[in-house]
């Protein structure tokens, strides 16, 4: 995938071009201000529309016996609700709308990114870092507000032998601060990697001899990416639940 910059033989690969942020109106060279309407804006907007279509329009009839769309909406609701309840316990239920927001946004953005020629908003570290650090700060502040200084008990493993505890505390603190980094880079990295691999396989299709293999490869990777999109949304959400549980019940 490096060949773009260095010219790899006759093939030209541009695996990273799909992630370029461009102004939606105007030409490429235009400066991007914070308010500029870009392809990021477009696909974030489509994510919002997808969430509305999935969760609001399908349930507008309020059928007691659900139709297809309403079943999907109820399935999502029940899935995330049960996840929050199972992982964080009863007192985590009041944060359910936040977690549902994260889940629906990531799921819709991931799936929209799989549409050919689209732009994957969740493949950008800036986006996922906001999500990940947002969760991190929210959970940390919540932990201190709910538990006060005893929230620090999270790092003091009282079940371990006493001489080990300072060592474990250092490890726990490091892993605590690595959480938001891994949380956000996992999502962005998975999406970026999958889409780049798709692009590389598509680049192989430029050679007629291996084009059929390349196209079959694209199909296979695409199937895998559909799976990864859903699993990453699930993983992001369940890890948020786990962190939330740590904030609400810091004692091991």
């Amino acid at each position: 995938m490096a060949d773009e910059a260095h010219g790899g033989g006759g093939l030209s690969f541009h695996p990273m071009d799909q992630f370029q942020v461009k102004p939606l109106f105007g030409s490429y060279g235009d400066p991007i201000h914070w308010y500029t309407v870009t392809n990021v804006t477009l696909w974030l907007g489509l994510s919002i529309l997808a969430v509305i279509a999935l969760m609001v329009l399908t349930t507008s009839k309020r059928d007691v016996v659900p139709g297809r769309g309403q079943s999907i909406a109820e399935l999502m609701y029940g899935f995330v609700y049960k996840m929050v309840e199972d992982v964080t316990g009863k007192d985590g239920i009041k944060y359910f709308p936040y977690i549902m927001t994260l889940f629906m946004f990531i799921l819709c953005a991931n799936f929209l990114g799989l549409i050919p020629m689209s732009f994957t908003t969740t493949s950008h570290i800036a986006v996922t870092a906001i999500l990940g650090f947002g969760v991190f700060f929210a959970v940390t502040i919540l932990g201190f507000v709910k538990n006060g200084a005893s929230f620090l008990g999270l790092f003091w493993v009282s079940s371990a032998p006493l001489p080990l505890r300072p060592v474990l505390a250092i490890i726990e603190i490091i892993s605590y601060f690595v959480r938001p980094v891994s949380h956000s880079i996992r999502l962005a990295g998975n999406m970026m990697a999958g889409h780049a691999v798709l692009k590389v396989f598509a680049g192989f299709a430029q050679v007629a001899a291996i084009a059929p293999v390349a196209i079959i490869g694209v199909m296979a990777i695409y199937g895998l990416e559909v799976l990864v999109s859903a699993i990453q949304a699930y993983v992001f959400t369940i890890l948020t639940c786990v962190y939330l549980k740590d904030a609400l019940h810091p004692h091991h």
């Binding site: 891994s182 880079i185 996992r186 990295g189 998975n190 699993i231 699930y234 993983v235 369940i238 890890l239 786990v242």
Partner: peptide
């Protein structure tokens, strides 16, 4: 399982 896979994969 998924959490474990996510950590390993990260």
């Amino acid at each position: 399982l998924f959490i474990g896979i996510a950590f390993a994969e990260a």
